[in-house]
Design a protein around this nucleic acid. Structure first.
Length: 932
RNA sequence: GGCUCCGUAGCUCAGCUGGAUAGAGCGGGUCCGUCCUAAGGACACGGUCGGGGGUUCGACUCCCUCCGGAGCCGCCA
C-alpha cells in the first residue's frame, strides 16, 4: 500500500492534461452537435499574488466546467487579466517600477499560481486588457459608439486633488481629503467623456425580469440602481422674487427664476420663465402642499445667496456637512426662507413660501420639491421644525376623516384622498391620474418619467489605461482619431515622478496633426475607466486572437451568452450593468447579433461568498481618564478602528469586562500570537473570525505554500465543503485537516482495493444484501451529486461523497459480489469527486485500471433500478407519536397502506378501546392515526 | 430609515414543496493499533433547532412578534 503523495501526483497529471490538450475549447465545426457551455469566472486584477481566498471563485467555475465537459458539452473556460488600473501606477510612483513591468510580472506569477490549482482552463485564449492587441479593438469600438451617438462630452464635477494635480475616484477621497496628499479635495468642473447608458435605460430595466437565473438580490440591486420612477413635473409661478426688487437687478443675465429656460414653447407645455419646476411622484397630495424646497445648489438658491447673507450661510453650512453616509445619518434637516413666493397650480389665490433645504438633492429630479408634510416624513420633520402649516390629505384605510390627524408621523401609503376639492374620494392611484390631467389642462405640469441612472463618465486622468482615440484641434474641435492609426499605444518612456497625468506632460506623445485640417493638434490625454475594459472581455474570449475585429460575430454568436458567470457580489451593480450596456451597444453597432437570451450577456449568474479567516489584533487596556475615540458595540466595529485609536469595548472581550477602554494596536499573524503573548505578557488580543483575507490584516494563507504542504486538491475541496457557496466560508486548520484526511482515506480505499474496477457495462454477479445496499447507495449518490452540482450546492455534494466513502469503508467482505459492489462504488466515487479534486481522481482512475483520463470520461449514469426505492418503511403514528412501522411498496395505494397500518399489531395495541377518528396517509412518508 | 439574508451539537454547516427517534465533517471522550511519534480503525457522548405566541393530526420547516448577527441601498420627492 502506497501513501498518496500530492507533490508527485499533482504536477504529473497537469503535465499530461496539457500534453493531451484536454482543456481546449473546440471550434463550432469540431464540436459538431455537441452543445456548448461557456463557463466564466470574473477575471482577476493582477495585484501580485493569489491566496487561498481567491481560489474559491475559480474552483467553483472549474467544478461546473469539468462537470459540463463530462456531460458531453463543448466547454469554453478561459482566463485573462483585468490589467489596467491604479495600483500599477501607484507602484510606479512609490517604487519607481514601470506599470507595464509591474503588471507583466504579476501576471506571470499569478498565471503560475492559478495553474497550480489544476483548473481546466483553455490557456491558449488568455488575454490581458493592457495588451495593445486587446485595446486596439476597444478604441475602434469607442469610435463606433461615438458615431452611433453613444459617446459625448460633458462638463462634470470631479474630485480634484490640488497638490497631486489629479482627479480622484470617490474611494480615494478619505474624510474629504486626498488619500495620498492629505490635501482637502476641491470640486472642479472638467470636460469628461460620457457613455450614454441612459439610452438603454428602459431596456436595461425591463430585461432584468428575464434574467431568471440571476440571484434575486442582484436583480433587485440592478433595478434600484436604474431607479425608474413615474411622476409629474409641476411648474409653480413665482409671484414674489426678492431679486426683482434688488438694487443689483441690472444685470440681465441673472435670471431671477433660476429655472432653466423652457425646453419648449408655451404651446408645447413646459415651464415659463418665472416658474419653478418641481418633480413629484405624488401629485395626488398637491392640496396638502405647504411650501416648496430647493436644493442648496439649485440655480435660484445660488442667485439669491449673492444678495442674502442668510442664504449664503445656509449654502455654506450644507457644503460643510458633507455627503458621506455617516453624515447623512446624523444630519438634521435645516433650511432657510428664500423670500420667494409661488402660486399653487390649482388655486391662483394660494400663495406658498419657497425655502432652501439641505435634504433636497440637486442631482435628482429638478432639484426642487413641493413639501406635503402629512404625506412625507422628511417634509413633516421640516414643517415641524419651522412651524410650517400642514393638513392631511390622504385618509388611511379604515381611518375616520373627522378624527384622523398627523403630528409626528407622516402617512406615506395609499389611501383615499380628502380635503382636496376635486380629488376628494379618489384612491391614491386615481388621484395621481386625475391631478396630472388637470395640470396638463392648466398648462402647469405634465407626466414624466425620472431615472436614477445617469450616464457613465469614462474619463480618467491617468496613464495606465486605454488611451481615448480623440484629437483636439484648435480649428476643428474634438475629432475622432483615424481608425487606421489604431492602436494608439501608451508611450513606454512616461515618467511618474511628477503629480498629474503622465500622458499630459509627456514631451512629445500628445502632439499630432489634425486628421481633418492637418494643422497642429493634441491627442486626448484621458484614458478610459477600467470598467470599460471589463465590459466586453467575455466576448473577446470567443475569438481572442482576431487582429481585424474584436471578435468574429459568428464565433461570438456561437459562444454567447455566457452560460455560467461566477463572481463576487461587489460587482452586482456597476460591472454587470456596464457589460449589459456594452452588449446592447455592440449589437447596435453591428458587432454581434445576440439574438438569444434577450440580448443579455450572462444567462446565469452566481455570486459566491468569500473565504474569511481569523484575525488577531493587539489591544492594551489603558486608563485615559475617560477619553475615547469611539465606543464599539461589536468586534467588527473595533477591528475597523485605526492603529492608535482609543476605544471602549461594549462587548465581551478578552481584554476585560464590558466597558473596558483599550488602545488599538497592530494586526498580528495567527501563528505569532503565542510567541507574542510570552514576549509581551501585558498585552491581549482581540479575535475576530470574520475578516476577508487581506495582506494588511495579516490573515492571508498563501497559495503556493499551501499547495506545497497539502496539495491543490485539499484547498479546492476545503473551500467548497464547509459552507454553502453563496455564503462566506471560514478557513480553519481543522477544516484543512478534514480535507487532508479525506484525500488520504479515498486513496487508501482505492489503492487497497487492488483490483481493476468493473466497467459500467459489466453485469453484476449475485451478491449479499450488504453489497447490494452499497450499490444502491452509490447510484443514489450519482443522482444526488449530479443535482447538487447543477444547483450549485457544492457543500451538499461534498457531504454525499463523505457518506459514500463511509459506506465503502464499512463493507468488509471479500466475496465476488462485494468486490464488484466495492469496485463499482469506488469508480463512481472517483468520478463524483473528479470535478472537485481532479488530481486525486485522476490518480485513482489510473489505479482502478481506466484510461486515459477521468477528466474526459463521460459522467456516470445512475441505474434507475438501483437508485429507485422499491419499498419504503413507513412509520405509523397514533396521535402524533410513533408506535410502529410497516414496509410498503413505493407508491402503494392509500387504502392498502391504511389497512396495513391498522392491522399492525403494535399499532392495534395502542388503538384498543379507542375510536379511530381519522387516518392521515402521506404517500411514501408517514401514516398518522387520530384516535380517542 | 427601507429591503434582503442568517440564527440547528463545542465549531463549520446539511435537513427537499410541513411528516419518523433532526444528520455530516472537525474538535473533545473511551478503546484498538504502534518500539516511539503519527496515519488509520472501532465505539459512545454531544441538541428545549435564538426566545415567545399562532396555524395543524403533525412545525427545524408556514404565519406573527421579540432578541441577536451580516449584507445592500439610502433625505431619490
Amino acid at each position: 500500500m502506497s501513501r498518496y503523495n500530492h507533490r508527485d501526483v499533482e504536477p504529473k497529471w497537469r503535465e499530461r492534461w496539457a500534453a493531451a490538450g484536454v482543456d481546449r475549447a473546440l471550434s463550432p465545426e469540431e464540436a459538431q452537435d455537441r452543445p456548448k457551455a461557456y463557463i466564466l469566472e470574473m477575471f482577476p486584477y493582477p495585484s501580485g499574488r493569489i491566496h487561498v481566498g481567491h481560489s474559491r471563485n475559480y474552483t467553483m467555475g472549474d467544478v461546473i466546467a469539468r462537470f459540463r465537459r463530462a456531460n458531453g458539452y463543448n466547454v469554453l473556460h478561459p482566463m485573462g487579466w483585468d490589467a489596467f488600473g491604479l495600483p500599477a501606477e501607484n507602484a510606479a510612483m512609490e517604487r519607481g517600477i514601470h506599470p507595464k513591468g509591474w503588471t507583466n510580472d504579476n501576471i506571470a506569477a499569478m498565471r503560475e499560481q492559478l495553474k497550480l490549482l489544476g483548473l481546466a482552463i483553455d490557456w491558449s485564449r488568455e488575454i490581458a486588457t493592457c495588451d495593445p492587441a486587446y485595446y486596439k479593438h476597444q478604441q475602434a469600438m469607442f469610435l463606433a459608439f461615438w458615431k452611433k451617438g453613444l459617446v459625448y462630452r460633458k462638463k462634470q464635477k470631479v474630485n480634484w486633488d490640488p497638490v497631486d494635480n489629479t482627479v480622484l475616484a470617490n474611494e480615494q477621497v478619505v474624510d474629504g481629503k486626498g488619500w495620498r496628499s492629505g490635501a482637502p479635495v476641491e470640486t472642479r468642473e472638467l470636460e469628461q467623456w460620457m457613455f450614454r447608458v441612459t439610452a438603454y435605460a428602459d431596456d436595461l430595466l425591463e430585461a432584468i425580469a428575464g434574467l431568471a437565473r440571476w440571484p434575486e438580490k442582484v436583480r433587485l440591486m440592478q433595478s434600484n440602481w436604474i431607479g425608474k420612477s413615474q411622476g409629474a413635473k409641476i411648474w409653480w409661478d413665482i409671484v414674489q422674487d426678492p431679486l426683482l426688487s434688488s438694487p443689483f437687478q441690472g444685470e440681465e443675465s441673472k435670471s431671477a427664476t433660476g429655472t432653466p429656460p423652457p425646453a419648449r414653447g408655451r404651446l408645447g407645455g413646459g415651464p415659463l420663465p418665472g416658474a419653478i419646476e418641481v418633480y413629484t411622484t405624488r401629485p395626488d397630495t398637491l392640496f396638502g402642499a405647504s411650501f416648496l424646497a430647493l436644493a442648496p445648489d439649485h440655480p435660484l438658491t445660488k442667485a439669491i445667496a449673492e444678495h442674502n447673507p442668510a442664504v449664503a450661510k445656509f449654502i455654506e453650512d450644507c457644503a460643510r456637512l458633507g455627503t458621506s453616509e455617516a453624515d447623512i445619518e446624523k444630519a438634521e434637516k435645516f433650511g432657510v426662507d428664500l423670500g420667494v413666493r409661488v402660486r399653487h397650480p390649482f388655486d391662483p389665490d394660494w400663495i406658498l413660501p419657497v425655502w432652501g433645504a439641505n435634504f433636497v438633492l440637486s442631482t435628482y429630479g429638478t432639484g426642487a420639491i413641493f413639501g406635503s408634510p402629512a404625506g412625507d416624513q422628511r417634509d413633516l420633520d421640516f414643517a415641524n421644525k419651522y412651524n410650517l402649516p400642514f393638513k392631511p390629505v390622504v385618509l388611511p384605510p379604515g381611518a375616520d376623516a373627522a378624527t384622523h390627524t398627523i403630528t409626528d408621523e407622516a402617512f406615506v401609503d395609499d389611501g383615499v384622498i380628502y380635503n382636496s376639492r376635486f380629488l376628494d374620494g379618489l384612491s391614491t392611484k386615481d388621484a395621481i391620474k386625475r391631478a396630472i390631467e388637470e395640470l396638463v389642462k392648466l398648462e402647469k405640469g405634465e407626466a414624466t418619467t425620472q431615472w436614477r441612472l445617469r450616464d457613465w463618465g469614462v474619463s480618467r486622468q491617468r496613464y495606465w489605461g486605454c488611451p481615448i482615440p480623440a484629437i483636439h484641434c484648435g480649428k476643428c474641435g474634438v475629432v475622432p482619431a483615424p481608425e487606421d492609426q489604431l492602436p494608439i499605444t501608451l508611450p513606454d518612456d512616461a515618467t511618474f515622478d511628477k503629480p498629474g497625468n503622465p500622458l499630459a506632460h509627456h514631451p512629445t506623445w500628445k502632439h499630432v496633426s489634425c486628421p481633418t485640417c492637418g494643422g497642429k493638434a493634441e491627442r486626448e490625454t484621458d484614458t478610459l475607466d477600467t470598467f470599460v475594459d471589463s465590459s466586453w472581455y467575455f466576448a473577446r474570449f470567443t475569438d481572442p486572437k482576431n487582429e481585424n475585429a474584436p471578435f468574429d460575430p459568428k464565433l461570438a454568436n456561437y459562444w454567447l451568452p455566457v452560460d455560467q458567470y461566477v463572481g463576487g457580489v461587489e460587482h452586482a451593480v456597476l460591472h454587470l450593468l456596464y457589460a449589459r450596456f456594452f452588449t446592447r451597444a455592440m449589437r447596435d453597432c453591428g458587432l454581434l447579433q445576440m439574438n438569444t437570451n434577450n440580448g443579455e450577456p450572462f444567462a446565469s449568474l452566481f455570486t459566491q461568498g468569500m473565504v474569511v479567516h481569523e484575525v488577531y489584533r493587539q489591544v492594551e487596556p489603558v486608563d485615559t481618564g475617560g477619553f475615547v475615540n469611539a465606543i464599539c458595540k461589536s468586534v467588527g466595529e473595533a477591528l475597523d478602528k485605526p492603529i492608535g485609536a482609543v476605544v471602549q469595548l461594549m462587548f465581551e472581550n478578552p481584554a476585560g469586562p464590558i466597558g473596558q477602554i483599550v488602545h488599538m494596536g497592530g494586526w498580528v499573524l495567527p501563528e505569532q500570537r503565542e510567541t507574542l503573548s510570552q514576549e509581551f505578557p501585558g498585552s491581549v488580543y482581540l479575535t475576530g473570525p470574520i475578516e476577508k483575507m487581506s495582506k494588511s490584516k495579516k490573515n492571508v494563507v498563501d497559495l503556493d505554500a499551501f499547495v506545497q504542504d497539502y496539495g491543490a486538491d485539499v484547498a479546492r475541496w476545503f473551500v467548497l465543503s464547509d459552507s454553502p457557496p453563496e455564503r462566506d466560508v471560514e478557513w480553519t486548520a481543522a477544516g484543512v485537516k478534514g480535507a487532508w484526511n479525506f484525500v488520504q482515506r479515498v486513496w487508501s480505499l482505492v489503492d487497497g482495493y487492488g483490483h481493476a474496477a468493473p466497467k459500467p457495462s459489466e453485469h453484476a454477479p449475485a451478491m449479499e444484501p450488504e453489497a447490494h445496499a452499497l450499490r444502491q447507495l452509490a447510484h443514489r449518490a450519482i443522482q444526488s451529486v449530479t443535482e447538487d452540482i447543477e444547483h450549485f450546492r457544492f457543500n451538499v455534494a461534498v457531504a454525499r461523497c463523505y457518506e459514500l466513502v463511509n459506506a465503502i469503508a464499512k463493507l468488509k467482505s471479500e466475496d465476488s459480489g462485494s468486490l464488484f459492489a466495492r469496485g463499482e462504488a469506488l469508480r463512481i466515487l472517483t468520478q463524483l469527486i473528479a470535478p472537485f479534486m481532479p488530481h486525486l481522481a485522476e490518480q485513482c482512475w489510473e489505479r482502478l485500471g481506466f484510461l486515459p483520463f477521468v477528466a474526459t470520461a463521460p459522467w456516470p449514469e445512475a441505474d434507475p433500478k438501483l437508485a429507485a426505492r422499491t419499498t419504503v418503511t413507513l412509520p405509523i403514528q397514533v396521535n402524533g407519536k410513533r408506535r410502529g412501522e410497516i414496509e410498503a411498496a413505493v407508491g402503494a395505494a392509500e387504502a392498502d397502506v391504511r389497512a396495513l397500518a391498522l392491522a399492525n399489531p403494535a399499532v392495534a395495541q395502542f388503538l384498543a378501546g379507542q375510536t379511530v377518528r381519522k387516518v392521515i396517509v402521506v404517500p411514501d412518508r408517514i401514516v398518522n392515526i387520530v384516535a380517542n
